[in-house]
Protein backbone atom coordinates (compact mmCIF):
# COMPACT_ATOMS: atom_id res chain seq x y z
CA UNK A 1 0.00 0.00 0.00
CA UNK A 2 2.93 2.31 0.76
CA UNK A 3 3.85 2.57 -2.90
CA UNK A 4 0.39 3.90 -3.76
CA UNK A 5 0.90 7.12 -1.81
CA UNK A 6 1.16 9.24 -4.97
CA UNK A 7 -2.23 8.05 -6.18
CA UNK A 8 -3.75 9.18 -2.87
CA UNK A 9 -1.89 12.49 -3.26
CA UNK A 10 -3.36 12.93 -6.75
CA UNK A 11 -6.90 12.29 -5.46
CA UNK A 12 -6.52 14.71 -2.52
CA UNK A 13 -4.95 17.44 -4.67
CA UNK A 14 -7.69 17.16 -7.31
CA UNK A 15 -10.47 17.22 -4.70
CA UNK A 16 -8.87 20.41 -3.36
CA UNK A 17 -8.62 21.84 -6.89
CA UNK A 18 -12.27 21.08 -7.73
CA UNK A 19 -13.55 22.69 -4.52
CA UNK A 20 -11.10 25.61 -4.37
CA UNK A 21 -11.37 26.21 -8.13
CA UNK A 22 -14.95 27.36 -7.68
CA UNK A 23 -14.60 29.13 -4.35
CA UNK A 24 -11.32 31.07 -4.63
CA UNK A 25 -11.59 34.77 -5.47
CA UNK A 26 -10.46 35.59 -9.02
CA UNK A 27 -9.93 38.92 -10.79
CA UNK A 28 -12.48 39.73 -13.50
CA UNK A 29 -10.60 40.63 -16.71
CA UNK A 30 -12.42 41.95 -19.79
CA UNK A 31 -15.31 39.82 -20.98
CA UNK A 32 -14.00 36.66 -19.30
CA UNK A 33 -16.15 37.00 -16.19
CA UNK A 34 -16.10 33.86 -14.10
CA UNK A 35 -14.96 31.77 -17.07
CA UNK A 36 -11.35 32.43 -16.00
CA UNK A 37 -11.87 29.59 -13.55
CA UNK A 38 -11.46 27.32 -16.55
CA UNK A 39 -7.74 28.02 -16.11
CA UNK A 40 -7.67 25.56 -13.19
CA UNK A 41 -8.92 22.72 -15.39
CA UNK A 42 -7.91 23.61 -18.96
CA UNK A 43 -4.19 24.38 -18.51
CA UNK A 44 -3.43 21.23 -16.41
CA UNK A 45 -4.66 19.13 -19.38
CA UNK A 46 -1.82 20.58 -21.47
CA UNK A 47 0.76 20.14 -18.70
CA UNK A 48 -0.32 16.51 -18.42
CA UNK A 49 -0.17 16.13 -22.22
CA UNK A 50 3.37 17.57 -22.38
CA UNK A 51 4.47 15.20 -19.60
CA UNK A 52 3.02 12.19 -21.40
CA UNK A 53 4.53 13.13 -24.77
CA UNK A 54 7.93 13.69 -23.12
CA UNK A 55 7.72 10.23 -21.50
CA UNK A 56 6.77 8.87 -24.91
CA UNK A 57 9.77 10.56 -26.58
CA UNK A 58 12.20 9.24 -23.96
CA UNK A 59 10.95 5.66 -24.37
CA UNK A 60 11.05 5.94 -28.16
CA UNK A 61 14.72 6.99 -27.92
CA UNK A 62 15.41 4.14 -25.47
CA UNK A 63 13.67 1.72 -27.84
CA UNK A 64 15.87 2.77 -30.76
CA UNK A 65 18.90 2.13 -28.55
CA UNK A 66 18.01 -1.42 -27.47
CA UNK A 67 15.11 -2.62 -29.70
CA UNK A 68 13.27 -3.83 -26.61
CA UNK A 69 9.53 -4.15 -27.33
CA UNK A 70 8.65 -3.28 -23.72
CA UNK A 71 10.04 0.21 -24.35
CA UNK A 72 7.76 0.46 -27.37
CA UNK A 73 4.78 -0.45 -25.17
CA UNK A 74 5.74 2.39 -22.79
CA UNK A 75 6.12 4.88 -25.67
CA UNK A 76 2.82 4.03 -27.37
CA UNK A 77 0.88 4.00 -24.08
CA UNK A 78 2.25 7.41 -23.09
CA UNK A 79 1.40 8.81 -26.53
CA UNK A 80 -2.20 7.59 -26.40
CA UNK A 81 -2.77 8.93 -22.88
CA UNK A 82 -1.13 12.21 -23.95
CA UNK A 83 -3.34 12.47 -27.03
CA UNK A 84 -6.38 11.80 -24.82
CA UNK A 85 -5.48 14.71 -22.53
CA UNK A 86 -4.68 16.85 -25.57
CA UNK A 87 -8.15 16.27 -26.99
CA UNK A 88 -9.67 17.13 -23.59
CA UNK A 89 -7.60 20.34 -23.48
CA UNK A 90 -8.67 21.27 -26.99
CA UNK A 91 -12.33 20.58 -26.27
CA UNK A 92 -12.35 22.62 -23.06
CA UNK A 93 -10.52 25.46 -24.82
CA UNK A 94 -13.00 25.44 -27.71
CA UNK A 95 -15.95 25.61 -25.33
CA UNK A 96 -14.34 28.56 -23.58
CA UNK A 97 -13.56 30.25 -26.91
CA UNK A 98 -17.21 29.96 -27.94
CA UNK A 99 -18.20 32.38 -25.18
CA UNK A 100 -15.15 34.63 -25.03
CA UNK A 101 -13.80 34.78 -28.59
CA UNK A 102 -17.16 34.29 -30.24
CA UNK A 103 -16.34 31.12 -32.15
CA UNK A 104 -15.77 27.46 -31.34
CA UNK A 105 -13.18 26.87 -34.06
CA UNK A 106 -11.53 30.17 -34.89
CA UNK A 107 -8.60 31.12 -37.11
CA UNK A 108 -6.59 31.93 -34.01
CA UNK A 109 -2.97 30.79 -34.46
CA UNK A 110 -2.78 29.04 -31.09
CA UNK A 111 -5.91 27.01 -31.73
CA UNK A 112 -4.86 26.12 -35.29
CA UNK A 113 -1.32 25.11 -34.33
CA UNK A 114 -2.60 23.04 -31.42
CA UNK A 115 -5.07 21.26 -33.68
CA UNK A 116 -2.22 20.41 -36.08
CA UNK A 117 -0.04 19.14 -33.21
CA UNK A 118 -2.81 16.87 -31.91
CA UNK A 119 -3.50 15.58 -35.43
CA UNK A 120 0.19 14.66 -35.78
CA UNK A 121 -0.05 12.55 -32.64
CA UNK A 122 -3.32 11.00 -33.80
CA UNK A 123 -1.47 10.15 -37.03
CA UNK A 124 1.13 8.39 -34.87
CA UNK A 125 -1.60 6.22 -33.35
CA UNK A 126 -3.12 5.51 -36.78
CA UNK A 127 0.34 4.67 -38.17
CA UNK A 128 0.79 2.10 -35.41
CA UNK A 129 -2.49 0.43 -36.28
CA UNK A 130 -1.56 0.20 -39.97
CA UNK A 131 1.56 -1.97 -39.52
CA UNK A 132 1.06 -5.66 -38.68
CA UNK A 133 4.66 -6.67 -38.01
CA UNK A 134 5.46 -5.81 -34.37
CA UNK A 135 9.17 -5.03 -34.77
CA UNK A 136 8.65 -2.95 -37.88
CA UNK A 137 5.76 -1.09 -36.23
CA UNK A 138 7.91 -0.32 -33.19
CA UNK A 139 10.84 1.03 -35.24
CA UNK A 140 8.85 3.17 -37.67
CA UNK A 141 6.61 4.63 -34.99
CA UNK A 142 9.58 5.40 -32.73
CA UNK A 143 11.16 7.50 -35.50
CA UNK A 144 7.81 9.15 -36.26
CA UNK A 145 7.37 9.91 -32.56
CA UNK A 146 10.66 11.83 -32.43
CA UNK A 147 9.58 13.99 -35.38
CA UNK A 148 6.15 14.49 -33.79
CA UNK A 149 7.76 15.83 -30.61
CA UNK A 150 10.08 18.07 -32.62
CA UNK A 151 6.96 19.60 -34.20
CA UNK A 152 4.89 19.71 -31.00
CA UNK A 153 7.13 22.20 -29.19
CA UNK A 154 7.31 24.90 -31.91
CA UNK A 155 3.64 24.43 -32.84
CA UNK A 156 2.20 24.72 -29.35
CA UNK A 157 4.82 26.63 -27.42
CA UNK A 158 6.93 28.88 -29.65
CA UNK A 159 4.74 30.07 -32.56
CA UNK A 160 1.73 31.10 -30.43
CA UNK A 161 4.02 33.29 -28.31
CA UNK A 162 5.54 35.04 -31.31
CA UNK A 163 2.39 36.06 -33.16
CA UNK A 164 -0.69 37.96 -32.08
CA UNK A 165 -3.28 35.63 -30.69
CA UNK A 166 -6.48 35.98 -28.71
CA UNK A 167 -5.27 33.33 -26.32
CA UNK A 168 -4.18 34.58 -22.87
CA UNK A 169 -0.40 34.62 -22.59
CA UNK A 170 0.28 35.51 -26.24
CA UNK A 171 2.37 38.43 -27.49
CA UNK A 172 -0.23 41.14 -26.85
CA UNK A 173 -2.85 39.43 -24.71
CA UNK A 174 -2.85 39.35 -20.90
CA UNK A 175 -2.11 35.93 -19.51
CA UNK A 176 -0.82 34.20 -16.49
CA UNK A 177 1.62 36.90 -15.40
CA UNK A 178 1.82 38.45 -11.94
CA UNK A 179 0.38 41.72 -13.19
CA UNK A 180 -2.63 40.00 -14.77
CA UNK A 181 -3.72 37.48 -12.18
CA UNK A 182 -4.04 37.29 -8.43
CA UNK A 183 -1.62 35.24 -6.34
CA UNK A 184 -4.66 33.30 -5.11
CA UNK A 185 -5.03 31.67 -8.53
CA UNK A 186 -1.55 30.19 -8.27
CA UNK A 187 -2.54 28.51 -5.00
CA UNK A 188 -5.01 26.45 -7.02
CA UNK A 189 -3.24 26.24 -10.37
CA UNK A 190 0.03 24.67 -9.21
CA UNK A 191 -1.63 21.91 -7.17
CA UNK A 192 -3.83 21.35 -10.24
CA UNK A 193 -0.74 20.83 -12.42
CA UNK A 194 0.67 18.24 -9.99
CA UNK A 195 -2.67 16.53 -9.37
CA UNK A 196 -3.72 16.14 -13.01
CA UNK A 197 -0.22 15.04 -14.06
CA UNK A 198 -0.18 12.38 -11.33
CA UNK A 199 -3.64 11.21 -12.44
CA UNK A 200 -2.34 11.03 -16.03
CA UNK A 201 0.67 9.00 -14.89
CA UNK A 202 -1.68 6.66 -13.01
CA UNK A 203 -3.80 6.07 -16.13
CA UNK A 204 -0.55 5.62 -18.11
CA UNK A 205 0.71 2.90 -15.72
CA UNK A 206 -2.63 1.09 -16.02
CA UNK A 207 -2.44 1.14 -19.84
CA UNK A 208 1.19 -0.03 -19.74
CA UNK A 209 0.44 -2.92 -17.38
CA UNK A 210 -2.50 -4.03 -19.52
CA UNK A 211 -0.52 -3.85 -22.77
CA UNK A 212 2.46 -5.70 -21.26
CA UNK A 213 0.12 -8.53 -20.27
CA UNK A 214 -1.19 -8.50 -23.85
CA UNK A 215 2.37 -8.57 -25.25
CA UNK A 216 3.26 -11.52 -22.99
CA UNK A 217 0.25 -13.44 -24.31
CA UNK A 218 1.23 -12.80 -27.93
CA UNK A 219 4.86 -13.83 -27.40
CA UNK A 220 3.98 -17.05 -25.52
Amino acid sequence: MARHWWKALAILLLLYVIIAGFTVKIPIIGTNGQSSRGLFFHVPMWICMYTMFTISLVYSLLFLGKYDLKKDVMASSAASVGAFFGVLGFATGSLWATYTWGGTLTDDPKQMCTAIAILIYLAYLVLRMSIQDMDKRARISAVFNIFAYALLIPLTYIIPRMVDSLHPGSATTPGFASKDTDGTMKLVLYPAFIGWTLLGVWIFTLVVRYRKLQLKKIIQ
Binding site: L14, L15, I18, I19, F22, T23
Partner: peptide, 13 residues
Protein backbone atom coordinates in the same frame (compact mmCIF):
# COMPACT_ATOMS: atom_id res chain seq x y z
CA UNK B 1 -26.42 27.52 -6.06
CA UNK B 2 -22.95 27.27 -7.63
CA UNK B 3 -21.85 24.91 -4.82
CA UNK B 4 -24.32 22.36 -6.16
CA UNK B 5 -22.14 22.24 -9.28
CA UNK B 6 -19.05 21.80 -7.10
CA UNK B 7 -20.84 18.85 -5.48
CA UNK B 8 -21.66 17.43 -8.92
CA UNK B 9 -18.01 17.60 -9.94
CA UNK B 10 -16.86 16.03 -6.67
CA UNK B 11 -19.28 13.13 -7.16
CA UNK B 12 -18.15 12.60 -10.78
CA UNK B 13 -14.48 12.75 -9.76
Amino acid sequence: KIYVVVGVLVIIF
